[in-house]
Design a binder for these strands. Structure first.
Length: 568
RNA sequence: UGGGGGAUCGUCUAGCGGUAGGACGCCGGCCUUUGGAGCCGGCUACCUAGGUUCGAUUCCUAGUCCCCCAGCCA
């Protein structure tokens, strides 16, 4: 596993880090961290944070990025996610070396620090109910009121907090709160809750604890304990920063990490929030967390997206503080760019139409040379069998070709990729439906690919497979999960309203060239003229399944669309 | 209506008082045995109003609009 090259794209956070290093702040060290809660799977929004945090650390000599599980809430977390998150980070191409941490490993230290806060009279045990605490908190425009328990003595607080830990009280009966300012205009400073009682089994600490620290308490302290220099998080934590700084200052730690916030990633025609992704999975609107339509890392991986493409995308979208929605087309661009460079080309017919070459000898099979990757000559060539009966794409024939349609039509010629120029003589139709069922063509023997004598040009080259050699496959085409670009931000109640009912299109009876017969799950190909496809994990040698990662750019589709929508 | 943030091409993003640049996208053209890729060209932006200045996207003032915060979630 190698860590990717440092990026050159700058942003305001990199500038802060560079300035801090130049000024010798934090002793010139750079230590960042990626701190997921293990309560769900990672998505491409997390990838932005991962690329940023690991990127910044990797750029600084001696810099390092920790992976820390922010596991302070026993009721939501699961070791399954701990595993999956590590896999995803590694798959993305990043390495935390031996810097794997868990907030739960700090529970004892956190507890000790809470005691010291109490002894400084900076924290107290509150015995109001959750509802009462909410009432006392005030509102956005009204000041809060002190809890009647705010003036408990230090001794009483120490005693009560110890009894909280000892398990003497039921959930919700007491909390530990910081004693800051109930009149603060910043609600986060109105005596925030530091510990709550939760009689629950923590996936790592079991029943050792029944009190758990809150994010606002555990996070800054974890950062300080690990010597994090730059604690990078998303915008919604901006007004927690004064509290973060308060906790760090009270901790008297030799390390003073600084929190820096950036805008989270939004993408058009998808959703990114854990809650919405969970709902899609729970309601079976998608097949699971690795459904290739999802922006989860597992989903993108199953779809055939490469970690390199995701990294390039994350570097190019930049990092700033303004809310933004990045177009899915930009992600697709980076996917195509990467896949174009590396994918072997093959021929696959998704919607077959039978073609008989009337003048081609029956029983003869020619092995034609096909280039594996024109972008990479070292990928070599392969043989593709050619014979009298072939299949081509239904879309590559029109009985009544529109203007600008260069492909096959009665009386017209096209080149078969790596093969011959053929001419359509007649089309057989189903007498019932009128649909074209079979084409009769003639081939020009002088035009075989690579033969020197024939210089004739035709307007189009189409892909094909030999009927008796082709392998049957199923192909899944993915379309946008949402019809609305702004699904991410649409009204809460009906956010599923713009779900695309046709986001998954299953094609069976597709015919692929024989070289694909035992293609391994996960392997990626370009189906010439169509797009990039990968072999699904469910695929078997005799029951191939391909997922379309992304289509090729389709100029003809655009031309045809423009024809149908006359200019205004 | 309190507090915290943010406004630059259609979309992301750069700019740090001196010709508003890049990428995606879109539109043309060239090339092409993938209507792919590649190459060339074009398109469109500083939220508003004042002020400071020789000069303002940048600094100041006042607005406008957008986002976040009232979990014992993170």
């Amino acid at each position: 596993m190698s860590t990717p090259e440092p990026s050159t794209s700058s942003n305001f956070i990199r500038e802060i880090v560079a300035a801090d290093r130049a000024a010798g702040k934090h002793g010139g060290r750079v230590v960042t961290r990626f701190p997921p809660e293990p309560n769900g799977y990672l998505h491409i929004g997390h990838a932005k944070a991962i690329v940023l945090n690991f990127g910044i650390a990797n750029e600084a000599s001696g810099g390092i990025c920790h992976l820390r599980f922010d596991d302070t809430n026993p009721t939501t977390e699961d070791p399954e996610y701990v595993q999956a998150i590590q896999e995803d980070v590694r798959w993305l191409g990043f390495d935390w070396h031996d810097r794997l941490f868990y907030a739960s490993d700090y529970f004892e230290q956190l507890y000790a620090f809470a005691i010291s806060l109490i002894k400084k009279d900076k924290a107290y045990v509150d015995s109001l109910t959750a509802d009462q605490i909410r009432e006392h908190r005030g509102t956005l425009t009204e000041s809060g009121r002190d809890s009647p328990y705010r003036t408990r003595s230090v001794d009483e607080n120490v005693n009560l907090f110890a009894r909280m830990r000892a398990g003497e009280f039921a959930d919700g009966t007491h909390v530990l709160r910081a004693k800051i300012d109930m009149g603060s205009p910043n609600i986060n400073l109105r005596d925030p809750i530091l510990y709550r009682i939760r009689h629950a089994i923590h996936y790592r600490t079991g029943t050792a604890w029944c009190i758990y620290p809150s994010y606002d308490f555990a996070h800054p302290l974890s950062d300080a304990i690990e010597g994090i220099t730059h604690s990078i998080c998303t915008l919604e934590f901006e007004d927690h920063r004064p509290l973060y700084d308060w906790v760090v200052a009270e901790a008297d730690s030799p390390h003073r990490p600084q929190q820096i916030e950036f805008a989270r990633l939004n993408l058009t025609s998808t959703v990114m929030s854990k809650r919405k992704l969970l709902e899609l999975v729970d309601k079976k609107l998608v097949s699971g967390w690795d459904d290739p339509r999802l922006p989860t890392l597992k989903g993108l991986r199953r779809r055939g997206v490469t970690p390199e493409a995701i990294r390039a995308f994350c570097e190019h979208i930049g990092v700033a503080k303004r809310d933004a929605i990045v177009e899915m087309q930009l992600l697709e661009h980076f996917i195509r760019e990467d896949l174009n460079r590396r994918s072997p080309r093959v021929m696959a017919v998704l919607r077959p139409l039978k073609v008989v070459l009337d003048n081609y000898p029956d029983g003869v099979v020619e092995e034609l040379d096909a280039v594996n990757n024109p972008e990479d000559i070292s990928a070599g060539t392969r043989k593709v069998p050619f014979s009298r009966t072939l299949y081509i794409e239904q879309d590559d024939f029109r009985e009544n070709p529109p203007k600008q349609f260069f492909r096959l039509a009665p009386g017209r010629e096209v080149r078969l990729r790596y093969g011959y120029i053929i001419k359509c003589v007649s089309a057989t139709k189903d007498p019932q439906t009128g649909a074209v069922t079979e084409l009769h063509c003639t081939y020009d023997p002088e035009t075989r690919s690579g033969s020197a004598q024939e210089q004739r040009k035709v307007k189009a080259t189409i892909h094909w497979v030999s009927a008796s050699h082709a392998v049957t496959a199923a192909v899944r085409l993915y379309h946008p999960l949402f019809l609305s670009d702004r699904a991410n931000l649409s009204a809460e109640q009906d956010w599923t309203g713009s779900l695309n009912p046709q986001s998954l299109e299953l094609l069976t009876g597709c015919l692929v060239e024989p070289s694909l017969h035992s293609a391994a799950p996960g392997s990626r190909f370009q189906f010439e003229r169509q797009g990039y496809f990968c072999v699904d994990p469910d695929s078997l040698p005799d029951a191939l399944i391909f997922n379309r990662t992304v289509s090729l750019k389709d100029t003809w589709a655009r031309v045809e669309k423009a024809r149908q929508t006359p200019p205004r």
